[in-house]
Nucleic acid binder design. Structure first.
Lengths: 152, 152
DNA sequence: GTATTTGCAAAAGCTTTGCTGCAAC
DNA sequence: GTTGCAGCAAAGCTTTTGCAAATAC
């Protein structure tokens, strides 16, 4: 590439609690458990994994409530929905939004998901907004291929 | 943006027939109709639209055959599968691949899909390959927001 | 007390699959 | 004649929805 550029570490996740409070949104007991589970997730969750993890803390939580809560957080822009190149069926994955965009790399060999943040992506987004007159609200960049380890 | 750059017109679609012939792949009658329909589609097709269009020419074609043919073309890298930000349910859309990557803009207001090709996307892809050691086979960049007309 | 949310079960939407017979060479 | 593909119908998987009961304030 022409301009050398270090890969910045990922920006911090939003603090869901703080954001919801700031917007005056109150949570029921179930939603509180779900929000906490999402906030502390160590990997990309699909609806059913989230459900399983949340049920460990509140066995009464229903999968429909999981979807309804995810829908609310999506609409508020607090979580992003990913496809991860449909590596594993058609389910969606969810992650807490961050102040800066990042992209996802899905390895067709081992299923590993990598994340990468770069200014070039932010700049591209801005270029598109200006060139197309489009007010971008959300975006998703996913690459599929073979990771460093699976190429060998 | 820092570097002014004209938006190139989209690169040409692959010629599916030629590519299949080059690889020594022969088509059945149904697949021939499907390939032609995809090649000449004027907009992004989902499986059912493709089915409807193809059935106008061969009423016997089954939806399962549509999916099987799309699967083959995907695997060969001749068509790309898009989500278009799930603007309309969870179905997928298909388009003939092109020599250069382009991105999609989905308007949440009117449902319009725009396409945009820029060198910056190609460069970003290459940067990612080098920085992450990833051999990218396919990629998808989609933005959702409000188009020029819906912002007014 | 009123408004919202929940659990449940059923439905919906899209895609895949098993199988038998037909088509391609 | 062998190999693979098509049609059909059924199943599969993920997500959404209607409704009565429960919860939140």
């Amino acid at each position: 590439m022409s301009v050398s550029e270090a890969a910045p570490k990922l920006a911090e996740r939003y603090d869901l609690y703080a954001e919801l409070a700031r917007r005056g949104i109150r949570l029921t007991r179930q939603r509180r458990v779900l929000v906490e589970t999402i906030q502390n997730a160590s990997r990309h969750l699909d609806a059913e994994s989230l459900w399983r993890q949340a049920r460990a803390r509140d066995a009464s939580i229903n999968l429909a409530t999981v979807y309804r809560t995810l829908g609310m957080l999506k609409k508020l822009g607090l979580v992003d929905e990913l496809d991860l190149m449909h590596l594993e069926g058609e389910k969606h994955y969810y992650e807490v939004s961050r102040a800066r965009a990042h992209l996802h790399l899905a390895c067709f060999g081992c299923g590993r998901i990598e994340e990468y943040q770069t200014e070039a992506f932010e700049r591209l987004r801005q270029q598109v907004e200006e060139a197309c007159g489009f007010a971008i609200q959300t975006g998703r960049l996913e690459f599929g291929g073979r990771c460093r380890h699976c190429r060998a």
